[in-house]
Design a protein around this nucleic acid. Structure first.
Lengths: 218, 218, 218, 218
DNA sequence: AATGAATGAGATTTCATTCAT
DNA sequence: AATGAATGAAATCTCATTCAT
């Protein structure tokens, strides 16, 4: 808030944010390790190498930790997806492809944490739930914009671009949700390529099909 | 099973299956009501208007109840989807459409129960989990067959029909998973129409596009 | 009570006693089978092939069943031990031996039921407990009398005949209590012989040792 | 274990072992108080003046508590019996006497806890049961050795020394098992004297009877 | 006389949260 | 700032007992 900070306060805040990170990482690690989303505060403390009590200094409750883990993943989207889009250059179709790939890769790297959103109902309160939903929707925005650009440039056919964007998010999540099924035949790269081809085939305007031939064959 | 049943035994069995149904319905109702997939045995007993102990006469454990609720939904797929396909006539593309519609409608009628599959990891044991996965995969089969027929007849382009089938299942589930999002702009019929159009646009062979114009405009 | 009974009443009583026997046998069977003394009323009903409700027509409570099973074993002592003594002829030392053998054999035939006495504390009320203790003490009486006779005839040395009698009862019980230990080296016949030899060696008057040589070498 | 301990860790361990002792004592106290070997976790918590949850910090399960109580008694044997033997000097017969006395006195001091072994079947798992049996058998060893020494020196007659040792253990347990009977006529000292006299009369070699006259008259 | 469905209290166990140190 | 012992409510499951049929 204030631009000039008491150095002690700054140090404290730095330590605090470091602690938060340490705890969040431990939580993510624990989830990937146990494969279960049922993580007790005691187990989290043990994994993070701190005491239970300390967790409550940084997070008000278990729900807060859960919320933070989820937010953490969502934040990763906010970082990675725009970066991937920027890297993809000006072509909106390739930007869509890059965005979807980035989504999938983030999810692949935090599979169990990503699934946490699908359990919120129980643990989290209405307010937190609402917050997550807003963040998730915001997360689709770069994708939606790339799609809109493609439509504006005539490279994509104009049809339900909102729905399409959300479908792509869902298919990215599906890599975590139905990993047990997809992993039988695909690895993450194959998955991205196949799903992208499938989705784009219905979207790319006929006169541009040749140009995106590399994307359209899964 | 046997042709001649002791009437008492028959009556008892009828009562027993009625009880199971009552409990399963209560479980489903409770989920829809609380919006939560976490149902305690106490709460279930209260909702069903019976005692805790009685549940254990019909289901060996909480896992059994959960498994039964899930199986119940999956069984509904097994009934409704083939029926819808049969009603749709011989055209494989229209059969795909009918199958997807049936999926979505079953899920719409049991939204929270349908989500139970996405929590299995915690509650259910490995065996039960495996069982559910098998059932789910089996559930996609009619859809996969209709797609294969469409490809064989040249009405659909041959591309990853397995993946397509599973994607359609996922999009049906998405109606429950992301209901809070989709319901802002779509009702169940609109959702089915839009998703179907989107998926089919990438699948229908060019020379048949005109024939399925009604399906292709979401 | 009344000497002349209504035939219906007599028939009913006969049926009732038959039922009791059926239930008691089932209880004993169940205990030997599961090896555990924790027998639920449901399990007992199943084993006996009757309904739970019916047990309560013949026994007021679970404690009553337990008490009856215990009494049943004790009654068997009351029958078998005097019979064995009678068969053993006039010699009091041999009568002692016969009594101990009978004790051990009854216990061997109902090992787990015999152990029930050692659990009474929990389940049974004070009154029932008292009743069992009295019966158990009464059960030692034939043995005590045979010992007393032996002392009176000068064949046994006079020393703590009460304690000796109870010790013999205990050693018989020990066959059930510590069966896991004794069965490593002895069968029931060997056990009886060895224990008897050990006990009698301290009891038989020196001038009669030769006469009972067969009993004194375990 | 390690020579230099972190004082905090050492203090914590001390506190922890103090808690264990407190809980074990409470368990023993509860058993003596209620006269019952069945102790619920709630009751144990109440008796110890702690919460239920805390018990689970020190013992993994109810079985663990039970096992610990039993082990506690058995450990007392391991301490007291060899000590008593050592105090008794070189004479093996007097060492046998001292060992038996020590057994009986330990049992007298923890009567109900000592009986716990006779309930193991129900509560404890197979492994724990096995463990207890081994410990019990190990417990007889000092007695067995003293007997063997006596035989080797020709002071005791060679006959079933294994069985004799176990019988003496049983007679010690009998003080708890049949306390209600023996207490009518004997106190613990009288019991020890009488039982010892009885057992030794059959064991002491004729030429040494005079030497042990004090032990042989109960 | 007989059934067995139904009850509900009670048992064990887990775990989010607090608080004295 | 940090600890971790302690709490106690809640969850699952069992089983003696009752009662309508």
């Amino acid at each position: 808030m204030s631009e000039i900070l008491d150095p002690d306060v700054a140090a404290r805040e730095a330590r605090a944010s470091q602690r938060s990170r340490q705890l969040l990482d431990a939580a993510a690690r624990l989830m990937e390790k146990t494969g279960s989303e049922a993580v007790s505060m005691q187990a989290l403390a043990a994994e993070a190498g701190v005491s239970v009590g300390l967790i409550y200094r940084y997070f008000g409750s278990k729900d807060d930790v859960l919320l933070a883990v989820i937010t953490d993943v969502l934040t990763q989207f906010e970082v990675e997806v725009p970066a991937a889009i920027a890297d993809a250059g000006d072509d909106p179709v390739r930007r869509v492809g890059a965005a979807f790939g980035a989504y999938c890769r983030v999810i692949d790297s935090r599979r169990h944490a990503a699934l946490l959103t699908y359990r919120e109902s129980n643990a989290l309160g209405h307010e937190a739930r609402q917050r997550i939903k807003e963040l998730e929707v915001a997360t689709v925005d770069p994708l939606r914009r790339a799609l809109a650009d493609g439509i504006a440039e005539g490279r994509l056919v104009a049809q339900h671009s909102d729905l399409v964007a959300y479908n792509l998010l869902l298919l990215a999540h599906a890599w975590a949700l139905k990993h047990w099924y997809f992993e039988r035949t695909l690895d993450i790269d194959g998955y991205i390529r196949a799903q992208l081809a499938l989705s784009l085939r219905g979207l790319v305007a006929p006169e541009f099909v040749a140009e995106y031939a590399d994307l359209l064959v899964g």
